[in-house]
Each structure stands twice: as structure tokens, then as C-alpha cells.
């Protein structure tokens, strides 16, 4: 019987000390654990813990970033990494609106991939480019990261342009402006916001449920 709680704690400690080797040894010790068990019982609670730590100030963004990268690489090393992808899938995309601060997007991208969501990475985009891409790629759920207040406010314009083309998608926003102004996501017409990874998972689960209906 595998003590998953013990291994989740071990993984968290390895991440907090940026010790990739310790994390890989843990995976070796686990033997032929299924990808599903590894993701759901070890990776998810670990990333939740780190996300909560980020929210309360006890964990730094560098540790969340390293955690996401380490988890992503461990999942690839499990028995059947492709089995983690959820079926059937809605079409997700993630982007940074109008600046070059890509770290937040990279973390969320890694976490969602780790949790079995297939996500298109649109990189850095403008509102005009984004409307075209959403239409061309038939996106259902769009995740937008912003650092600057003006970029966050641009989401209102994006929503209007999407509506003009009849594109009724779900938009989830994140980044500093939404962290400092908790009413801003509603003002710009987003469907949800999430401060850290631990908030993001329930938000995604709720929206995927709504989007399927």
C-alpha cells in the first residue's frame, strides 16, 4: 500500500529546496505507480500546497515555477504519461496579453498539462491577434495572464470583439492586477479569476462543467 501523503510531502520538500534529484529518487522509489495515481494523489496535492503557500506569502514564485517544471518532467517519466490526458477535452488556450512577462503563463501551462488538460500556448498576443486565434482554433476556454493594469483593462475590449464575432467562450484571468484589485475580473467581463494554482483547478472544473452544457 503506497503512502501517497508521505510522497506528496516528500515531493513538496524536494521542490522547496529545488532538489530535482531528490524528486526523481522519490519517483524511482514509487516503482510502477500509475500515471493517474501519481498525478491525482501526489502532484495535485503538492501543487495545491504550493499554491496556497504563494497566496499566504510563505512560498515564492520561483518555487512554484520550479515545482511546475519538476512535476511536468516527472509525469513524463511515469508508466503511461499520455494516459493522463482527459477525454473528451474542451479546447483550452493560454496567452499573455501585450507584454513579455511570461512566467505566470508558463507556470499555469505546466500545471494544467500536469493535471491532464491539453492546452494551446498562444504565447504573447494582442487583442486583435487573440480574437482571430480564438476563432480559428475554436477555443472553448481562454486563460489570460497580465502584468500591467492597462493590459488587464484591454480584456474588456477583447470580450466585446469576441461577442461581435459571436464567439461565446469562457475567459479566466490572472496576474498582478487581479491580485491587487479583486473586483477587476468582473469589471473586464471575465468569467473567473484565480490567484494561484490551488484556486485555478476548482475554477477550471466548474467552467468545464458549464461549458459542456
Amino acid at each position: 500500500m503506497i503512502d501517497f501523503k508521505h510522497y506528496a510531502e516528500e515531493l513538496k520538500q524536494a521542490i522547496l529546496s529545488t532538489d530535482r534529484i531528490r524528486a526523481e529518487l522519490m519517483l524511482t522509489e514509487l516503482g510502477d505507480v500509475s500515471t493517474q495515481d501519481f498525478v491525482e494523489k501526489i502532484v495535485v496535492p503538492t501543487m495545491d500546497d504550493l499554491g496556497n503557500g504563494w497566496e499566504d506569502g510563505s512560498v515564492a514564485i520561483s518555487q512554484v515555477y520550479m515545482g511546475a517544471k519538476i512535476c511536468e518532467s516527472l509525469i513524463v517519466q511515469t508508466n503511461d504519461p499520455d494516459a493522463k490526458f482527459r477525454q473528451p477535452q474542451l479546447h483550452f488556450a493560454i496567452t499573455v496579453l501585450e507584454d513579455f512577462h511570461l512566467l505566470g503563463k508558463s507556470i499555469i501551462y505546466s500545471v494544467l498539462r500536469g493535471l491532464g488538460y491539453q492546452v494551446d500556448d498562444f504565447g504573447r498576443t494582442t487583442t486583435e491577434q487573440l480574437v482571430d486565434k480564438v476563432e480559428q482554433e475554436s477555443i472553448d476556454i481562454l486563460l489570460i495572464s497580465t502584468l500591467m493594469l492597462r493590459s488587464a483593462l484591454k480584456i474588456k475590449e477583447l470580450r466585446r470583439k469576441l461577442e461581435q464575432r459571436g464567439l461565446d467562450i469562457k475567459i479566466v484571468v490572472g496576474g498582478a492586477p487581479f491580485r491587487f484589485d479583486t473586483q477587476l475580473w468582473q469589471e473586464v467581463g471575465a468569467d473567473a479569476t484565480a490567484v494561484g494554482t490551488s484556486e485555478l483547478v476548482p475554477v477550471i472544473e466548474k467552467l468545464t462543467g458549464e461549458a459542456k452544457q
Binding site: T18, S62, Y65, M66, F100, H101, L102, L103, S106
Partner: peptide
């Protein structure tokens, strides 16, 4: 370096 090389690249460099 966050401006010089992006935050992600900088964290990789730093660590």
C-alpha cells in the same frame, strides 16, 4: 535581468 532575459530564463540562470 527580468527585462534583459525574461523572468523564466532568469530563474533558470539563477538556479
Amino acid at each position: 535581468p527580468v527585462m534583459q532575459m525574461g523572468f523564466e530564463g532568469y530563474l533558470d540562470l539563477m538556479y
